[in-house]
Write a protein that binds this DNA or RNA. Sequence first.
DNA 1: GTCTATAGTGCGATAGAC
DNA 2: GTCTATCGCACTATAGAC
Lengths: 190, 190
Amino acid sequence: MTRADATAMPERPVLTTPQARIVAAALELFATKGVGGTSLQMIADSIGVTKAALFYQFRTKDEIVLAAAEDELSRLEAVLDTAEGAGSRTRQRQVLLNGMVDLSVDRRRTVNVILSDPVILGVFADHHRYHLVLDRLTDLLMGPGVGQHRHMQTAMFMAALSGAVMHPMLSDVDDETLRSELLRLARRFR
Amino acid sequence: MTRADATAMPERPVLTTPQARIVAAALELFATKGVGGTSLQMIADSIGVTKAALFYQFRTKDEIVLAAAEDELSRLEAVLDTAEGAGSRTRQRQVLLNGMVDLSVDRRRTVNVILSDPVILGVFADHHRYHLVLDRLTDLLMGPGVGQHRHMQTAMFMAALSGAVMHPMLSDVDDETLRSELLRLARRFR
DNA sequence: GTCTATAGTGCGATAGAC
DNA sequence: GTCTATCGCACTATAGAC
């Protein structure tokens, strides 16, 4: 997805709206300093505006955190949508694995935020869309059914992917190696 | 390890020194609020002392963070020591897998801190003992050798374990189920 | 839509009594 | 070894000019 587009795009307009720029900057900082360790001043500085400009777009820091969390969640939802639209069950699962690996590699610095930051986990605790995504993910990965082991495998799979791409031991592994090796290992989860 | 001792121990004296009590309280808070989201006031309150008492034991917050990170790292080192002392390579690997699963379940709320909190990762970035542990872990898990895929599998394994035990989707899975299921899945990593 | 200026709060850290 | 009291600073959030 990302690789194919790279050659077609002439420039990079991206992130036109103020909100989108703020959310993108926030996510990057959340990933490197944690949500609790990120101040509004840091976010404002990183996009060259003042704190007051942030408060014009969002009423509180919590709103920025929520928007950032949902932004990252949306990418996972998009992968799910595509996968569920594929043909056979086998094909759906294949598309999902590929999509999740691509997503993890593309958003290497930020995926782990929505999976492990305590503040984000708090935001998602009673978040309907989040739990819906987890259920859809489990159904596609493990097949419909019940039982704790299904959820355990889903959790381990997500954690393994996002934990690997951001692990300090692997910071000098290039994206292509990461992608192919991740895919190889991902196929063992069933 | 923990289960066997539970019946033998009559009471729970544990954590006698002030430093140990502070570190334990800090780790618990780091896990639920993140390092950046945890203030010295919170740590002090949770053990019933004032901030000034904290500064008598540690000179800065950073020193508390370092001590907490090394405390959790020590537990992993202990598992490695035991595993390396076992007989054959196969037996060593078996002991390591069991030890890591037990450790993950026993320290369910806190293991993930040293693996994913950005502040702790910063502390460990140039930390000699930390990198030594990762190397020993990779050698035992994957066998001696070179190549990025060895480190990738180690990273995925650690992330999968710690990510699973703390995943909100699995908060109502009891420790025994977690342990047996984790062991079953862990054996696939090679 | 972004700015300067500022209110009010809580932070990390220190001094000195007990 | 822990306390009370306090310093200076950075934080979230608001008011009002442009």
